[in-house]
Simulated assay, not measured.
Amino acid sequence: MKSLKLLCLPLLALSIGLAACGGKDKDPVPGGSAKKVQYKATASAGVQLYSAIYGYDQSITTVTSIGGTTWASPVIDVPASARGGTCVVGAVGANAQSTLKVEMFVNGELVKTGTSSGTALSAGTNLVF
């Protein structure tokens, strides 16, 4: 179990790195507005969520030792100047059929979903605003 967590950590870091790269060369949308963003993770039975990294631009929060099969971030007030939001959740699956789903909500509407399956789970979403 510990080796699976150690395997998932580099995957989680890589996912965040790739998500952070997206949209850096793009200008913010003219006339963009402030948003309320929330991230949610749901896993199948037997999966243990263990960490999440979420936020927008350089305002990133890390949560460890989540446990259980569900998690939700607080609703984040994202300023109009923000370029993008991202969330990656890591978990350990019970078997090859284990699943993890991460959802991104903007102003209460589901806008992105990411999924993963197997025993070393890392799912995420990102969105350029």
Rank of each mutant, 00 (worst) to 15 (best):
G118K: 05
A43E: 06
D77Y: 10
T125V: 10
W71A: 02
S98G: 04
T125E: 07
F129T: 07
G118T: 02
S59I: 02
L127R: 07
L100F: 06
S65H: 13
D77S: 15
S59P: 01
G93T: 05
A94P: 04
K112G: 00
L127W: 00
N95P: 06
S73H: 11
N107L: 06
A43D: 03
T115H: 11
S116G: 14
V111W: 02
S98R: 08
T99V: 03
A45P: 10
P74M: 14
T99E: 12
S98F: 01
V92A: 11
T69C: 08
V102Q: 09
T62P: 02
A80I: 03
S59F: 10
I66G: 11
T61R: 12
A123R: 10
G90H: 05
S65I: 03
G114T: 01
A41Y: 08
F129I: 01
G68I: 02
D57Y: 04
A120N: 12
T61C: 06
N95M: 02
E103M: 14
G90W: 05
V47F: 05
F105M: 12
Q48S: 14
I60G: 06
A45F: 07
Y56K: 04
S65A: 15
G84P: 00
V92W: 05
S116Y: 03
A82L: 01
V106A: 08
A120S: 09
V89D: 11
Y54D: 09
F129D: 04
D77A: 13
G55E: 01
K112P: 00
V89W: 06
G46T: 07
R83Y: 05
E103V: 13
D77G: 10
W71E: 01
S65P: 00
A80G: 02
S117H: 11
S73D: 06
G46L: 12
I76H: 08
S98L: 04
V89M: 08
Y56P: 00
A45G: 11
R83A: 02
G84I: 00
I53V: 15
G84N: 02
I66K: 07
Y54L: 14
S81C: 04
G124S: 07
V92L: 13
L127F: 05
G55D: 01
V78G: 06
G90A: 15
A91G: 07
T115M: 07
N107R: 07
A123F: 03
N95Y: 01
T69A: 15
G114V: 00
V102T: 09
V106H: 01
Q97M: 14
T64Y: 12
V63M: 10
M104S: 14
G67F: 06
V92Q: 11
A52W: 13
T64K: 15
T125I: 00
F105D: 10
S116V: 09
A41V: 06
I66C: 12
D57P: 00
G124T: 00
T64F: 00
G55S: 10
L100E: 04
A41R: 08
V63E: 15
T119E: 13
Y50K: 15
I76F: 05
V102H: 07
A72M: 14
N107K: 03
G118R: 11
G67W: 09
G108E: 03
T70I: 06
G93E: 10
S116N: 14
L49S: 10
E103Q: 15
V78I: 04
S65G: 15
